[in-house]
Design a protein around this nucleic acid. Structure first.
Lengths: 318, 318
DNA sequence: ATCCCCCGATTAATCGTTAAAGCAAATTGC
DNA sequence: GCAATTTGCTTTAACGATTAATCGGGGGAT
């Protein structure tokens, strides 16, 4: 059986309370005894019972992570970052996948609460209305979301992509989104639009409307995600246009497959580490009694790979 | 404050133990009182404290999930399936990402144990040696792994892919793997090899060795994952070979991007739901005192999409 | 020498739930 | 009709940690 606090106490002829004080460093224990206690605790491979500690202190050391859909390539990166930030802060991470549905999302939040999570990191399903919870919550979405805690500067990211293509001499762009409902996507496209120079023009194609990517005459395509960039890239290939020779393509979020394809995908990435860290820090602060820190926005970075190149000579076009 | 068992007891003038018995249905309570108790518990929105229950019963209702790498497109699907199977069985899921490293994997296992997981679902890093744990563990890997609990029939999956190409008249195949160390990959390729008909020939290319995919004269390529299939597909496109007109390509695991590309990727998928369900069932059985059920192997299924077509006419080749 | 204070430890009370034992009343068996 | 169960509920005692309250004693100040 696992040794308990009392076992260590018996071993040294002291009380369990003293052992607790020595290990947590909170009470008053003489330095000499403290060291002896720590040494024997180590020797006996003592592990405090998380359940007992949780019961007494009201803190489980576990936070919940609610994601819209793990099978969407966008989210595992966030999950990974949150997990590692949480682990670094001494928290475990309970996951819950809301599978797209906002109802399931509510269930997931309730379930995590029931399971004793100390706080929750929520990546909200689009169109979610935050319900009142008696747990600290950190929201990762966009600056446009009320109650948002940490997010990337999606507009700035969009601007980065446009600036990159502008530098390469592109004048005619296509912005590729999937759903107008997604705040992240519309923020990115808003940023793109705002960064256009007077010499440039751009059209926007929403995949939810249908429409043929290959029909465009744009020389640069910026998709709101790597997934749609991939669609663009393969569709273009198939219709005989070459990437990046004829058309340049940029994606978002730096998914693994972007490096697996030929040409590799130029992409605008989030600093998921920083965002996850900020979310966890916000929870930790709230748990420590501090008010929720204000929203933090992190810049995105563009990674240039093979899918972008200087615009083709206009003379050979038309 | 949350109502406690005692609060409900006071409300009805009974003892806390009776309330506990009524709610869990374990002790002896008259049906009439049981219903009254349940009704008031509902009315007072009573939620049992997971920590107190865990402390008393020694069961936390949480299982750990250890994955090699969430950023690898292969694993989120498994995570999602495990999460939903666990939720259905009333378990929460604590995730831990071992980030490739076997050392981190060991740490992750220890951490989950410390955090009070009742059991663990482990998708082992290649080359992992299972250490003895005093927790029930379910392993999801391959039938070739000693101690495996649930897995796909990877050999059978490989055979399916070969049979599909054989049906389409392909005679010369290329098998594309990444690492020989991966049991999953080598099992899949072994299955492919075994399914070759006498008229067929095949070469194997391991990406860890380097080598040019486009250099092959095979008319059918089977990659051990969608990711490598994607590499093959785009590399072929780039070198002027058309998919599926000149070369057919098959991947594994049915990742989301396989449907986003043009042509959509024919792929061999695992029944992740069934596997996750079996893993959770195994843990539940072990927690219930039963011996670990024997290994379960689930068939894979091939989904035909646009990347496979009849072999080109040999006359036009050469 | 006396008083006081603070250090260093102990005691005891909780946290909320459940398992086991106990006990009176109601029911059964013969 | 009386002993033997069964029923329905209560009491008691943990589970393993934290923490407020307490207490003895050594040392410094007066």
């Amino acid at each position: 059986m696992q040794p308990r606090l009392q076992d260590i106490a018996n071993e040294l002829g002291v009380s369990a309370a003293t052992v607790s004080n020595a290990l947590t460093g909170r009470g008053r224990v003489s330095p000499a005894l403290r060291d002896r206690i720590r040494a024997t605790a180590l020797a006996m491979e003592y592990r405090p019972s998380p359940q007992a500690r949780a019961l007494r202190t009201g803190r489980s050391g576990v936070i919940g992570l609610v994601l819209p859909d793990l099978s969407n390539p966008l989210f595992p990166a966030i999950a990974q970052a949150v997990e590692s930030a949480a682990a670094a802060a001494g928290f475990g991470v309970l996951i819950a996948d809301s599978r797209g549905d906002t109802g399931t999302q509510t269930d997931a939040l309730r379930r995590l609460e029931r399971q004793g999570a100390d706080g929750i990191v929520l990546v909200p399903r689009r169109g979610t209305r935050l319900m009142a919870m008696d747990l600290p919550v950190a929201v990762i979405d966009t600056a446009s979301t009320p109650g948002n805690t940490a997010a990337s500067d999606h507009r700035g990211g969009g601007a980065l992509a446009v600036a990159h293509l502008a530098d390469l001499g592109h004048r005619h762009l296509l912005f590729l989104g999937e759903s107008r409902q997604s705040l992240v996507q519309s923020d990115r496209i808003a940023g793109m639009r705002a960064a256009l120079t007077p010499q440039m023009q751009a059209e926007t194609l929403w995949l939810e409307d249908g429409g043929d990517i290959a029909a465009t005459r744009a020389t640069g395509i910026i998709a709101t995600s790597d997934l749609h960039a991939l669609t663009a890239l393969t569709t273009l290939h198939r219709s005989g246009r070459r990437v990046p020779d004829d058309v340049s393509v940029i994606g978002f979020d730096d998914h693994a497959f972007g490096r697996a394809i030929t040409p590799a995908l130029t992409t605008v990435a989030q600093d998921t580490q920083a965002i996850a860290g900020a979310a966890i820090a916000s929870l930790a602060a709230q748990l420590g009694g501090a008010p929720a820190p204000h929203e933090r926005i992190f810049p995105m970075t563009l990674t240039r790979r093979g899918s972008t190149a200087p615009a083709p000579n206009p003379n050979t076009e038309t």
